[in-house]
Design a protein around this nucleic acid. Sequence first.
DNA 1: GAGGTGCGCTGAACCGGTCAAGTACGTATG
DNA 2: CATACGTACTTGACCGGTTCAGCGCACCTC
Lengths: 358, 358
Amino acid sequence: MAQPARGARRVTISDIAARAGVSKGAVSYALNGRPGVSDNTRERILAIAGELGWYPNRAARALSVERADACGLVLARPAKTLALEPFFMEFIAGVESALSARSIALTIQLVESIEDEIEVYRRWFGERRVDGVLVADLREHDPRVDELVRLGLPAVIVGGPVKNHALPAVWHDEAAVVVEAVRYVAALGHTRIARVAGVAEFVHTAQRTEGFLSVTRELGLDGDVTETDYSAESGARVTRKLLSAPEPPSAIIYDSDLLAVTGLGVAQQMGFAVPDDISIVGWDDSLISQVVHPPLTAITRDIVAYGITAIRHLLEVIEGRTIADVETQRGELTPRGSTGPARTTNGPRGPRSRAAIT
Amino acid sequence: MAQPARGARRVTISDIAARAGVSKGAVSYALNGRPGVSDNTRERILAIAGELGWYPNRAARALSVERADACGLVLARPAKTLALEPFFMEFIAGVESALSARSIALTIQLVESIEDEIEVYRRWFGERRVDGVLVADLREHDPRVDELVRLGLPAVIVGGPVKNHALPAVWHDEAAVVVEAVRYVAALGHTRIARVAGVAEFVHTAQRTEGFLSVTRELGLDGDVTETDYSAESGARVTRKLLSAPEPPSAIIYDSDLLAVTGLGVAQQMGFAVPDDISIVGWDDSLISQVVHPPLTAITRDIVAYGITAIRHLLEVIEGRTIADVETQRGELTPRGSTGPARTTNGPRGPRSRAAIT
DNA sequence: GAGGTGCGCTGAACCGGTCAAGTACGTATG
DNA sequence: CATACGTACTTGACCGGTTCAGCGCACCTC
């Protein structure tokens, strides 16, 4: 009667011990597959545990083994933008799939700023809420890295690698990917190529920009980079500005899905035909790139696999088995309808060309 | 030396007690703002706690008060689709914002099926991982409800209400919203209106369909409903079929953002001008509806607020303070560029009309 | 001045696991 | 037959909080 009126009674190892006529310790050994009990007793205990529907009380286990059996992910981007970045949901899906098999939980927190993010790490560490965290959107001289190292909270950086890195990273060659994209549009005859980048402070943005500038220089192209904050508004604004220039680019490479789709919308609204007047390349190819018209040529990557790799690596780091970096499969360009050959003539382009038709 | 070489030493209430020269009990009272200590002592203890950077060990607290200080959300939709439904990320953002203020964690799990979802509830309950859960995508005779009631795990249904509901729900009038949308396109002169719905088994789908059919009947319109699984492919397939009919609808109302954007892409690809040949209405208006061209007329709702309401209600239910349903603000139609007047003539429409122009 | 009251604190049990140390017992060994 | 040893357990401390009973003491009351 001490139990609440409704609800199943939660069964503990003491219940199992009583039922099996052994001690708590024996039950613990049996359930954890450790030596110390006979095969007979073990099977009997396992049978009773199954019958009673026992699950280990995570709090109790956490208290004695100092393990939360949970990993954390903090995202410091505006909610509205996050919702539109299919990247994170797919990434989370990958992380989940690897975690749920070991019944480790994923705890997620959205914050406004990097300072808040650090505060969450402090709290999670102090509360023993998580055994480790994945860190996204790395910056140069990132204060989060210092804090995580100071705390001693296991962490894996998603995206990198960083010079003099104090934390292990899961990374892929961002520069090589952008080079592939530029070569592709260059091969289509485009010479004025713009890149609408993400947040300048992010390491992966810098790496992409570096790759972009070096390959455009190498190919003797007119390469231009503008940074955004990943928001749709900033993407729209930058695209509008680019296309309003006296000599607009004939190809634009965007740093995300949302930016690319936004850019496509702005171009169409301004009367540019895609890909006839302007070619568009997206990044982190998701369904959204494929369902718009025309479907976007995009840099495709198996983000789910990326999430799996990242979390597996974090689990290794938590176990103390490695502190190395891991390189993952890099993205590849998937050509679709939003890219086409550059106009060979130097004739009118953009809204004027369309006005000429209608 | 018992501590790991790197990493901060985690401080416990015993440390604070020793420093303050009082017992653990006194520290506990002081830190929890409960009577039992003088104001002087309380302040001294709080000062020491702040100085040492103390955070409560969640496992220890959970063990004694039987509170996990965590809520759960299980999503049983394919990851690829989920990633594209801005709804969930926005919803989660809302949930988070309400939780983080009380430093309650949100644990998320993606599963494949409703059976897996039930298994997760069993495990979470047995492990005392969560204090309660939010249940989305309710079905008629939903087995999850029975199981949650059986377990006695506090839960709030997101979407509803249900007849004979055994669990409290947070809901809004889905039927009224679809009626508003139909009246709007009807006022524009459309008489053949299709609805591309979500999963038929979901209660909110049924409610919308009911509202749709009743209002089209009332207005004497030709109303057609086709169900999908929310996937882009199914949305594309249905749209293609609708628009290939001898007498295609002149307006389509979609049940989600992704479906609507996909439908827009298919229509454009088939040569239908939007909104001249076909009007399109989306649902759960997110940025993605706004950045495509033309921007979508859509049913707008403050999803972040919806998440906040849902989780606040769950916390009330966990506290045992209420088991009532809560009605939330319903969606409203936001007209944009994807809807326009129906052609008054019975002349050719669709691809032919466009062919006639070019 | 005896008894009552309430404040401020202590001590210890308790939550449900884990795990090191100890014990009982059967069997092998010298 | 005593000793050693391995197996199969038991016992009890421990993790870090919460909470309740109890205790000393100051103050009030009649």
